[in-house]
């Protein structure tokens, strides 16, 4: 009986160990950094690509800088800075409409784009 109980407990623990990270991954993946970058967010943040370009390499003649390939932590830190109401007036509005999870997803997407050589 005890052996059965131990076995059952072990199976349950293993199931939990597999299920928890799986759920966590699903929860973060439902926010698409690419979609926000290209088409804006449901809360009305403008698409980043409009100013930073489709490949996040900036657009000549605009002040929006190239972002492709920059470190995730740096991009996320800047977005959080703008979202707190500091810095560039336009970025304050845009980042202010993104949730922390959305900022993180966008930062990961942009960081993964190849930087210009």
């Amino acid at each position: 009986m005890n052996r059965r109980l131990t076995l059952l407990t072990t199976v349950l623990c293993l199931a939990l160990a597999v299920a928890v990270p799986f759920n966590a991954a699903t929860a973060s993946d439902d926010v698409s950094g690419q979609n926000i970058y290209m088409h804006g967010s449901p809360e009305g943040a403008a698409p980043c690509a409009a100013c930073h370009g489709l490949q996040a390499r900036g657009r000549p003649g605009m002040e929006a800088p190239a972002l492709a390939g920059r470190p995730v932590a740096l991009l996320e830190e800047r977005l959080t800075f703008f979202a707190s109401g500091k810095g560039n007036a336009i970025m304050r509005i845009i980042a202010g409409k993104l949730t922390a999870r959305e900022r993180s997803a966008v930062a990961r997407y942009v960081s993964g784009l190849p930087a210009a050589e």
Partner: peptide, 20 residues
């Protein structure tokens, strides 16, 4: 104009919100 750094993207996105 598409190189507009402020008014145009905000206008378009806000209109987009209204359309949604």
């Amino acid at each position: 104009y598409t190189f507009c750094p402020d008014v145009c993207p905000l206008t378009l996105q806000n209109v987009n919100q209204a359309l949604t």
